[in-house]
Design a protein around this nucleic acid. Structure first.
Length: 375
DNA sequence: AAATGTCACAACCGCCGCCAA
DNA sequence: GTTGGCGGCGGTTGTGACATT
């Protein structure tokens, strides 16, 4: 025989808890401990299901719960852990003292997930998703006006990041969606490539091979064995391999399913430009890099940190072994000066975060590719 | 000022593994 | 060994607050 039912659901109260109920529950648990949730409501004088009491206690009333906005460090940790653990909110919460799984889950769904999507990152796989990108904005954004795009350098890899086929495919797609307005741009782009022999000679956009990526990563971190606290059990090789596959898949995805490209955004505005710069930077940063630096980062290697600081006002956990690329996503660099509370860094709005991202990653685009001609 | 839309989050729902009966 | 409740978990919903039109 099984146990008797924990409670008769009929007649039990549901919905928001009143202060009086909260007080009863807190008083009871502080005096007796929660013990059996089944019997707690009755003993505490509550017309609630034990399950409801447990949730209220664990998600809201527990004294060790840290409330308020998530710090950047916490957000970084969540992203890192999520990339490893997936939607194991309780496991993630176990590594974030004072945060509940429910809170983390909510924060993920309402903030982080949306931001990743906006940046063209699949929040499930953490891999770049070209179909989530707004390519027209990329091509028309300050990216090409800034003359500061140097992704490879930022990544510490010497392989070009953008396949010319991608450029052509993207522009072709754009043309199909915005024939009238963009034909000139596309023609100019292609003509410029043909017209300018240096373009190919300098091989700025030679084909990208995933194995090259891996080699490059290993150049940067030939002995990447140091792991952070969050994923110490996961071998770095796993990340390299997964990253390689992810990157390959990303390219494959783009090439095999180009019609998923989002070409709707022809509007250009500051917000979008800012976002798209971060979109691009994020998209062109192999997930392996993020994982590498987030989870397998070696403090002894050159580089990425140096490169980042060299390329921006990077101001993050640079001296911290736990440096992660997610810092690039969310940690502020300069103005507006973020609020700092107890060593944790906060930014008050989504815009600030996005703005930070855009400021963080300013790339150099070769002069040879003068996008102003196309605008 | 009212209507409508969007966001954030607390709370509920339903499933699953464990284990007491 | 079987049954079914408990506790834990992840997904989803309801609703109040706030923003926009």
């Amino acid at each position: 025989m099984g146990r008797a039912p924990c409670c008769d659901k009929n007649g039990l109260k549901k919905g928001p808890w009143t202060p009086d109920e909260d007080q009863k529950l807190m008083d009871y648990i502080q005096k007796n401990g929660h013990g059996s949730w089944r019997t707690l409501p009755k003993n505490a004088g509550l017309q609630r299901c034990g399950k409801s009491c447990r949730l209220r206690w664990t998600n809201y009333l527990r004294p060790d719960i840290k409330r308020g906005r998530f710090s950047f460090e916490e957000e970084e940790t969540i992203i890192q852990l999520h990339s490893v653990l997936g939607n194991k909110w309780s496991a993630i919460a176990a590594r974030l003292p004072g945060r509940t799984d429910n809170e983390i889950k909510n924060y993920w769904n309402t903030h982080i997930r949306k931001r990743l999507l906006r940046m063209g990152i699949d929040p499930v796989t953490h891999s770049p998703r070209f179909d989530l990108l707004d390519l027209s904005s990329i091509l028309g954004s300050q990216l090409y006006n800034s003359s500061q795009l140097n992704v490879s350098r930022l990544l510490g890899i010497h392989q070009p990041v953008v396949n010319p086929e991608l450029i052509r495919l993207a522009t072709s797609l754009l043309s199909s969606h915005r024939e009238n307005s963009n034909n000139l741009l596309l023609q100019n782009l292609q003509e410029n490539q043909l017209r300018n022999p240096d373009f190919q000679q300098q091989n700025q956009f030679q084909s990208f091979q995933p194995n090259q990526l891996q080699n490059s990563i290993q150049e940067v971190h030939p002995a990447s064995t140091t792991t952070t606290t969050t994923a110490s059990a996961v071998p770095c090789d796993t990340f390299f391999n997964e990253a390689q596959v992810m990157q390959a898949n990303t390219m494959e995805q783009f090439q095999s399913n180009p019609m998923n490209f989002n070409c709707q955004g022809s509007q250009q505005n500051v917000w979008q430009d800012n976002v798209m710069v971060s979109n691009l930077s994020e998209d062109f940063v192999p997930v392996s890099i993020q994982q590498n630096y987030g989870l397998c980062g070696s403090s002894s290697q050159p580089s990425f940190e140096d490169l980042v600081s060299e390329n921006s006002n990077f101001q993050s956990n640079i001296s911290n072994q736990n440096f992660s690329f997610t810092s690039v996503l969310s940690t502020p660099s300069s103005s507006p000066t973020p609020l700092t509370t107890s060593g944790s860094t906060y930014i008050s709005t989504e815009d600030e975060r996005d703005s930070y991202c855009s400021n963080m990653l300013k790339f150099e685009i070769p002069d040879i590719l003068d996008m102003n001609d196309f605008m």
